[in-house]
Write a protein that binds this DNA or RNA. Sequence first.
RNA 1: GGGCGGUUAGCUCAGUGGUAGAGCACUUCGUUCACACCGAAGGGGUCACAGGUUCAAAUCCUGUACCGCCCACCA
Length: 882
Amino acid sequence: MAIPFHDMEGRRHNMDNGMPTRYDASQSEAKWYEAWEQAGLFQPDPDPGKPVYSITIPPPNITGSLHMGHALCYPLQDLLGRYRRLRGDSVLILPGQDHAGIATQSVVEKQLRKEGTSGAQLGREAFVERVWEWRKDSGDTILQQLRRLGCAFDWSRQRFTLDDKYAEAVLKVFIDWFDRGLIFRGKRVVNWDPVLQTSVSDIETERKTVKGKLTYIRYPYADGSGHIVIATTRPETMLADVAVAVHPSDERYKDKVGKMLILPLMKREIPLVADMYPDPAFGSGAVKITPAHDANDYQVGVRHNLPMPVLLDERARITEEGGIYAGLDRLEARKRIVADLEEQGFLEKIEDYEIPIVVSERSGEVIEPLLSEQWFCDQPKLAEPIINAVKNGEVHFHPERYERIFLEWMENIREWCVSRQLWWGHRIPIYFTEDGTPVAALNWEEAEKKAGAKIVRQEDDVLDTWFSSGLWPFATLGWPEQTEDLKRFYPTSTLITDRNIINLWVARMMMMGYDLMGEKPFSDVMIYATVLTHDGKRMSKSLGTGVDPMTIIDTLGADALRYTLLSQTGDNQDLRYSERRTEDARNFCNKIWNATRFVLMNVVPSSVKASPPANLEASDKWLLSRLHLTERKVREAYDNYDIQSACQALFHFFWGELCDWYIEISKPRLNDPATRETPQWVLLTAIEAFLKMMHPVMPHITEELYQHLPIEGKSDFLMSADWPRIADSFSFEEEEAQMERVFEVTRGLRALRASIDLTPMKPIPVAYYQGDLYGAEQVLSSQAWVQELRQGKPAERTVSSTVAGIDLHIPIGDLVDLDKLNSNLGKDLAKLSDEHAKLKLRLDNPQFVERAKPEIVERERATLEDMESRMTKLKERIDLFK
RNA sequence: GGGCGGUUAGCUCAGUGGUAGAGCACUUCGUUCACACCGAAGGGGUCACAGGUUCAAAUCCUGUACCGCCCACCA
């Protein structure tokens, strides 16, 4: 296409510089990603003299494809990496994936079910093999998508939590902790997921309330002296009741404690015990005790040394303990038992009741508390050093409020059930001798050596996924070997994650890092916002409210998507995603593209000098001064994880200052060979600095444009360039303020034109001004489209206004609608008088004058004076048209 | 039950003591030789509510309402 170009003599030519008028993201993105990768820019700089910045990314699960949350999370890390790289650090961002035990296993189980088979049918070995196949297929999708987002991660150092080396590290930790007594076996009531048939931890469950029934049952005393009434939401568990408990202070039962009761249906005798647990104010004050199926009941059972029969099996069906009800599903059993109780006269009453239930996050199934043998980790012991470290400021949270939430949780931390009854994961390295003694060892042979006895079996359970991901910041770097990477990159710099896994993951990394490395795993934890739909709903595939980031990238580009999400990232806890905002971001890309294209069309390469020209005009100084300020703002914002402020500053500088004013002002000078060198230099300086500062957010378009810049001392890539150094000598406070006033006056003159319906941008022959324009008359006349700007006030009839102390006059003929004009002037005066009255009132208040800061009072006085002078002028102007 | 966040223009959000801001949307005007994915000029807000502190409150304090999130063993 034909594009105008200026030659050495300043004559215009049409020349094809190959840049279309619209930025085409699809052309640019893959091209530059590949170029960076080939140039090895994703690997850390080996220079040992450079400061190090490292991140081990939260490994995405291998269970599907990326969603909008990922499209924020990973570019955010990429942003920090790119920023630190520009600032001169050696940057490592280490990617990887998590085997995600329960999640992955249930995905594959679902597939098998569709094929008419199951894990149980395949057997352990074949099933695990099948999951590995799935990992190969699905794992790459996610990596491909991270590339499309522009993430400059070091793929050569990629890790997977089930890789041989990583797995060995996991086992070593288990063995170490077992030998140190930090891991132990115990019988506890755990959360049992009857669908996945495994235990899950408290934080993998969700609490809900559902409409249900509260059933009151009569338990007769064995001696025939009447009965006691208990209330329960789970009548079926009565089959395994071993006692009824009342509070020791409860007068109703004081003389009954110690008596025996007859358990209805089972006709078994159980004692009435006194315990602190029951609340006398609730129901009848008496609680049935089923130790194997309720954590509280279990505690009572332990205190009173009661038996603990297990009534439900791994699928939540009634066991042999349930006598004639054996084999029934728990809900079926409930119906039958209530019916039988009624028939036999034990049912007191049934009330509607809001039942609190616990649901498994993974399967959605109601969790059954179940007494079983599990492996536990002594978290309270591990937590101590962390609490101190966070309090001492070794690890910082952003936003800060999460620090307190985290500490509160750490201070109330409990045992961690680390065993899962799954196949996909790290099998617990415990071996049992014939007499059942557990030995922790890397393998069978070592276990026998360690035990000095014959080993008969290995523990079947695998470890909770978070046990392995807790090692992520150092196991990925080669631990337990003292590798070069480990020495160089640990502790890592920043951890960026979702607030939902602070306790699940962040806490574990901290505990494991401090215990095993003796040092924090990272110095900053940044919690980013949850991405919601445009109307504030949760994004979810099943609800159909999810937006696929890849579709957005296809149509609007990765940079636009990144900008959309990153420019809304501050310390907010939610973020609403709307495609319209991505369209705005795409428009911003296009603006950047075209402004740069304009500069390139107006730059003669030979005229580009590395050092600033001597003859800077006020507008040049203004722009450089704004650039100076913008650089500081952006740097500080990036440093404080306040990405939205960085984006805002960059947007405003580029669109509102560089494009709206500087480029427009400079056009006349750029068209004149005698004056164009200075604005050329200023433009290139500003654009180069802007592209660098924008690069962490929008890496592709900035790289593309940087490659076009005809400047000296360029790097091969913008990505590997240096952060702009804007000398303090570019700060021109006085010129800056003066130019701002000239712009204000310009806007005033444009508005004055509009008030008499003068079409914008159509030149008018003459306008007058009174006051000091600091020599920037040219700016006013060109930007308010005036052919001739004269000083003074003409004798002929004019419309006038006063802006920033400058009087403006446009001569008018007879064509002006005087009524409209007068009405407008009247409105202005009314508004002004109103403000004036308010301000006057304030200044007349002696307390204000006395107590307010003197500079405030002085400023208000000046404002008042200005208002008065404007009012006088307005009145004169109104009189003129009467 | 406890804790945390939010409530500012039609929409999405900035704004931590000194005359209410941005982007989008809207109205009017305009294709000017970077860009109509553009430019110019406008309209639009008792800053959720009620008290309090202060010369001065969107901003600080107390309380209330609504929305969202997290934590919690009441059968």
